[in-house]
């Protein structure tokens, strides 16, 4: 395994791919159009696949190539295609109003990135540089995905937020040398299963309410109140 230090190609490329994912997370947070959300998500998954390939190359770990291939096939191709089909079938409107203003959610997102950097960097003082930066980026992506789930009313956007959160988890997993393959594989399977559940849920919700606004679900608890 090559030593990764600041200024070498190995470090820079990994850092760039992680940074790209974070940037795409911010774009997800600010985007209102649904087709664009799917596209950005596919792009983020592609970056993740590239990052996995690159890590596989740098760490000389062939298992990571498999991870990258799965990530690309499942998240960059299959899931976006399925999401588009779902969108067409449900005849969703093109734009969705977020519950939280775009500016507010961007500001909160910046705050979360600062927070994750402040948490991760001092904790991992002892480990090598790449892992530290990568972990900070991955935690930021996770927190931004969570923020997206919070800031959107539409179940569709919340699903995409969840998928993007999971991208952050995989990014953290591939950045750490020696993470067993089985963990990454099971994460990939989990996300596919979750997608199937979400798809069924979205359809059901659309049939019931003719909308994907989750405020419709509040009434379910209302009968006990």
């Amino acid at each position: 395994m090559t030593q990764l230090v600041y200024g070498t190609l190995g470090y820079d490329a990994a850092h760039m791919l992680g940074g790209l994912m974070l940037l795409l997370s911010f774009t997800l947070l600010s985007q209102r159009r649904m087709t664009a959300l799917i596209d950005i998500y596919a792009l983020q998954a592609t970056c993740l696949a590239l990052a996995a390939f690159w890590q596989g190359h740098v760490q000389s770990a062939p298992a990571l190539y498999l991870t990258g291939a799965i990530a690309f096939a499942a998240k960059a191709v299959l899931i976006p295609a399925a999401l588009r089909r779902l969108m067409l079938r449900l005849q969703l409107t093109e734009t969705m109003e977020p519950a939280l203003g775009i500016f507010a959610s961007m500001a909160l997102g910046v705050g979360l990135v600062v927070l994750s950097i402040m948490v991760v960097l001092p904790v991992t003082m002892q480990s090598q540089a790449l892992t530290r930066e990568d972990l900070a980026l991955a935690l930021s992506v996770v927190l931004l995905g969570l923020l997206m789930m919070i800031s959107r009313r539409s179940a569709f956007a919340q699903v995409i937020g969840f998928m993007s959160l999971e991208n952050g988890l995989i990014l953290a997993a591939i950045g750490v040398a020696g993470m067993p393959l089985v963990v990454e594989l099971s994460l990939a399977v989990l996300i596919l299963v979750a997608f199937v559940v979400f798809g069924a849920f979205l359809r059901r919700m659309d049939r019931q309410f003719h909308s994907l606004d989750t405020t419709n679900l509040d009434r379910v608890g209302g009968q006990h109140r």
């Binding site: 519950a99 979360l112 927070l115 994750s116 948490v119 927190l143 969570l146 923020l147 789930m149 919070i150 009313r153 919340q158 989750t214 405020t215 679900l217 509040d218 608890g221 209302g222 006990h224 109140r225």
Partner: peptide, 19 residues
């Protein structure tokens, strides 16, 4: 009886507080 978003917000806020 919290709404979906309220629960998510609470989880997110707690996580952020912990961090």
């Amino acid at each position: 009886f919290l709404t979906v978003r309220q629960i998510l917000t609470m989880m997110g806020a707690l996580l952020a507080l912990l961090l």
